[in-house]
């Protein structure tokens, strides 16, 4: 039964034994829950769904270093949903916090004060505001130093916790608290979303992948693959956010699927810089299907259709897949 606490997969033995077979279907997802319910995240939070699967893949022998954002609310005194340790850092420095913990664990093991079996994986957890903007430089430094850590960025494409303000991850033409469509800019956000995958990949880290809460099998297999590498293992999860994106909470998974099926969110991985797409839709749906169901893009359709902006978005997606010679 789910959540009864038995860790079958690692047998409590240690990180090395954790390398697991690839799973094939939803039925193979490990039943153990490493993050319990009752957290204050919004009903239908896409980031939480992604994290729940990441936690299943990572197991319990981890320590999370969490930069300020929605997910720092997961652990509010005196409650925590985790069975592992968790540390709160400022927005710009979670990777620096991870370095400190990694060093401390390594020194303790070296001095014989910590059994190597008690070793922990260090996992940085941040939103896009941290990952794309504020902690970009400290992450770059950590990757460059080949710090042995995981990074999970749940990308809800805005500063969610403070009420949905524009971030470097906000897509072109999206409405946020600080990019309201109006007289000055009828399209909302005027800048393009940063390509964080490309920025991180330019460091050629051992493992880097994009993931989706709607593709848990792909997600878990990517974590399993990453496990064999020492050094930075980085993940970006596009995470539908009901209040931020203007969708019904029940629609999170449908929308995450649409992001992949329209080509807006490419599921891919890169090993030491070598790129491979892991899920390529057989036929791409028009991007409009993804946009029109979200409140943050409603101004592109009403009161007048903003054809120019809609075309620009579709062209951007087509250009990406053409560049990778995957547009059929």
């Amino acid at each position: 039964m789910a959540g009864n606490g038995a860790i079958k997969r690692d047998g409590g033995k240690g990180v090395k034994d954790m390398v697991m077979e690839r799973i094939k279907s939803i039925k193979d997802i490990p039943p153990e829950e490493n993050m319990l319910p009752g957290t204050p995240t919004c009903a239908g939070c896409g980031g939480l769904l992604a994290l729940r699967h990441c936690m299943k893949a990572l197991g319990r022998k981890i320590v999370i270093v969490n930069a300020a954002g929605c997910f720092t609310l997961l652990t509010i005194y005196p409650y925590t949903p985790f069975k592992n340790s968790w540390l709160y850092t400022a927005m710009a420095c979670a990777p620096a916090g991870a370095q400190g913990i990694r060093d401390a664990l390594d020194i303790l093991i070296k001095k014989g004060r910590l059994d190597p079996d008690e070793n922990l994986k260090v996992v940085v957890l941040t939103g896009d505001g941290s990952a794309y903007d504020m902690s970009l430089s400290s992450t770059s430094g950590a990757i460059n130093r080949n710090l042995d850590f995981y990074y999970i960025c749940y990308d809800n494409e805005a500063y969610g916790n403070t009420g949905v303000q524009w971030s470097g991850a906000t897509p072109f033409a999206s409405k946020t608290g600080t990019t309201p469509p109006g007289m000055l800019s009828p399209i909302g956000a005027e800048l393009a979303k940063k390509d964080l995958f490309a920025i991180w990949n330019s460091h050629k880290p051992p493992y880097l992948a994009t993931i989706s809460p709607a593709h848990p099998v792909d997600l878990i297999n990517k974590f399993k693959k990453a496990e064999q590498y020492k050094g930075p293992k980085l993940f970006i999860a596009l995470s539908p956010c009901p209040p931020g994106w203007g969708i019904d909470p029940s629609y999170t998974v449908k929308l995450a699927k649409l992001a992949v099926d329209t080509g807006v969110w490419a599921l891919k991985e890169a090993v030491f810089g070598n790129l491979k797409h892991t899920v390529v839709p057989k036929r791409f749906k028009p991007v409009e299907e993804y946009l029109k169901v979200q409140g943050r893009f409603a101004h592109l359709f009403k009161p007048v259709r903003q054809e120019g902006a809609l075309n620009k978005i579709q062209e951007g997606v087509d250009e990406y897949w053409n560049r990778h010679k995957l547009l059929l």
Partner: peptide, 25 residues
């Protein structure tokens, strides 16, 4: 998202109503 669907002894899923936030996914 919240892990509020559990499995009974016969392998059927059921809701943990104490914690389910009602997102209806």
């Amino acid at each position: 998202p919240d892990g509020c669907i559990l499995i009974n002894e016969d392998g059927y899923p059921y809701t943990d109503y104490d914690n389910c936030k009602g997102c209806l996914i």
